[in-house]
Design a protein around this nucleic acid. Structure first.
Length: 556
RNA sequence: GUCCCAGUAGCUCAGCUGGAUAGAGCAACAGCCUUCUAAGCUGUGGGUCGCAGGUUCGAAUCCUGCCUGGGACGCCA
């Protein structure tokens, strides 16, 4: 399936054999041979710096080493057409024309599966993301985390990992009590009563809506009931309302979870007390000032953390430790948490907890999503759940469209802050790279339809060796890189590489399109080959777009 | 004060497990539609890779210090 990788592996093996034959190093000494794809075509299809790396071991000048390697290289076995030594000792390989031959048939055969590899070896990975408290709307920052987490999952799954998406619902604790009190106030206000919002209440419009909805549905029925009973009811009502909205927003954003995990279940199943017992038994817990502490400083945290406050309540950390124990018990090889930048300080204590529970710190990996700054007409807008003025994911989707929002959010590295220009994203101009990529896909679809209307069989056999134009070879090479690119994005957890790739491929397609004519009735053989190439590009673009969750339209 | 992220072209950002002349989009400028979608293509200009040291054959990339911007440092979540 991964044609290019096979070519590379063969070449690497032959280089290694040449090094041994030239007696430059022993099998044990030889470093990993790295092949890079030179930016400059004059430097060949592949290049290696092995001669420089061997300089110390072989005690020879790099260029001399390079010559020794080349002299001992079996060029036929390695499918090499020409070798050059350049610069300080690079060896540049120019491959035989046919090294790209199998790419199109491979893609056409694999179709939607093109890009899949087994580098993940079925390893079980769990990704927990979004996990927003059900106390208000999803806003811009959450949306970035949602897009990142979702695309990361897609990338991992494509690279052969077994991925589970999970949302942790904070349905216990202070913030939910606050939600209930806020709903209570808004309900009473909706009835025209003079009620004050709690000090730490949630001032979003959604809470006002809940209050109104309750007033409409139940009238003043609850106003006369016992306050505790009323608030208990409002708590459930508010929770379900908020969760329902979050789930619906995410679904429209094309993000769906395998599992919604309730914090309350940890209380119900006594998992919190269990994990406390476990930490106590391992001697990582002590009592001081009426509180129970976790000695996280045993594991590189800068201070110890309270588990049980002196009022007897748990801190946020305690159920969270139980939650992670629960995850680990479910047999995942790796846990990935996607957090907002404002939570980064939480990493050391969570990693400490993982270790205190008896696991390697590396079991848990935390991806930090930097802030999104929203701009409107050159002016920075504040985002705050409290003000109620935040631009919500819903508004954003309505104004800009899901495709553009997702594309923008995964176009950049997660640890760079993101400037989101509302006006720019809203204007459906050609500044918008998502259109550029989609247009490439639509263009190919149009060509294929044209071909059919001209009576050309788009499924006929073809000779790929007719594809010799520079832009055709560029496309073929790029197509061949797709599976490796996904594998690398998975390994480095950098989903933005997919966005970049898809953009680059679209660019090559547009360039080819303007340089060569695909449907040439005077040259049916070449036309068949080019149609096959177009189909391969279309499949790869569609697969790439699918991974980032953006539609691949057939016409625009 | 401590910790995390960022600092690369006018703007927004890639590149960072060390490699050849540092890339892309936008903006600027000059061209390309009787021909498969001009939401496109081709070309030009544009850089002390924050600063200073260090490591080595070689540093945007690794190490140290400093500067600037953002964030975090609760018995909040």
């Amino acid at each position: 399936m991964n044609v290019l990788a096979q070519t590379e592996n063969t070449l690497k093996e032959q280089i290694g054999a040449a090094v041994l034959q030239a007696e430059l190093a022993t099998k044990e000494e030889i470093p990993a041979i790295i092949l890079e794809k030179p930016k400059d075509k004059a430097h060949g299809d592949f290049a290696t710096n092995i001669a420089m790396q061997l300089a110390r071991i072989a005690k020879k000048a790099p260029r001399q080493i390079a010559e020794d390697i080349v002299a001992n290289l079996d060029e036929a076995k390695a499918s090499v057409e020409k070798v050059e030594i350049a610069g300080p000792g690079f060896i540049n390989f120019f491959m035989k024309n046919d090294f790209l031959t199998d790419i199109i048939p491979t893609i056409l055969k694999a179709e939607n599966d093109y890009g899949k590899t087994d580098v993940g070896k079925g390893e079980k990975v769990q990704v927990e993301f979004v996990s927003v408290n059900p106390t208000g709307n999803l806003h811009l920052g959450h949306a970035r985390g949602a897009a990142f987490g979702d695309v990361l999952c897609n990338v991992l799954a494509t690279a052969g990992y077994e991925v589970e998406r999970e949302y942790y619902i904070n349905d216990a604790g202070n913030q939910i009590d606050n939600l209930a009190l806020s709903v209570n106030a808004r309900y009473l206000q909706a009835l025209g009563q003079d009620a004050e919002m709690p000090e730490d209440g949630y001032h979003g419009e959604d809470i006002t809506e809940i209050g109104k909805a309750l007033a409409k549905e139940h009238g003043d029925k609850w106003a006369n009931k016992d306050e505790a009973e009323r608030i208990a009811f409002f708590k459930e009502y508010g929770l379900q309302y908020e969760l329902g909205k979050i789930e619906a927003d995410l679904k429209d954003f094309r993000v769906e979870f395998d599992n919604w995990f309730s914090e309350r279940s940890l209380y119900k199943n006594e998992e919190i007390t269990d994990v406390l017992d476990k930490l106590k038994a391992a001697n990582y817990v002590y009592e001081q000032d009426g509180a129970t502490w976790f000695r996280s400083t045993d594991f590189d945290d800068d201070k110890d953390r309270v588990l049980v406050k002196n009022d007897g309540a748990y801190t946020y950390l305690t159920p969270d430790i139980a939650y992670h124990q629960n995850k680990l018990d479910r047999g995942f090889n790796k846990l990935i948490n996607v957090w907002g930048a404002d939570h980064h300080g939480y990493i050391p204590r969570m990693k400490a907890a993982i270790q205190a529970l008896g696991y390697e710190a590396e079991k848990l990996e935390v991806k930090i999503i930097q802030m999104v700054n929203l701009f409107e007409k050159g002016e920075k807008l504040r985002m705050s759940k409290r003000t109620g003025n935040a631009v919500s994911l819903r508004e954003l989707m309505d104004e800009v469209g899901v495709d553009a929002v997702r594309y923008f959010f995964v176009a950049r590295s997660n640890d760079s802050q993101l400037d989101f220009d509302l006006e720019l994203a809203r204007s459906q101009s050609n500044d918008n790279p998502v259109f550029y990529v989609q247009y490439a896909h639509a263009r190919i679809c149009t060509m294929l339809k044209q071909a059919e209307s001209k009576g050309i069989d788009v499924n006929q056999t073809f000779d790929q060796n007719l594809l010799t134009a520079e832009k055709e070879l560029d496309l073929l090479k790029k197509l061949g890189e797709f599976p490796q690119m996904i594998a690398e994005a998975a390994e480095k957890q950098t989903p933005h590489k997919v966005t970049q790739y898809v953009f680059d491929l679209a660019s090559l397609l547009h360039s080819f399109y303007n340089a060569e004519k695909v449907l040439d009735m005077d040259n049916p053989e070449l036309t068949s080959a080019r149609i096959a190439l177009m189909k391969a590009v279309r499949i790869t673009l569609a697969n790439g777009l699918n991974i980032i969750g953006v539609k691949a339209p057939e016409k625009m």
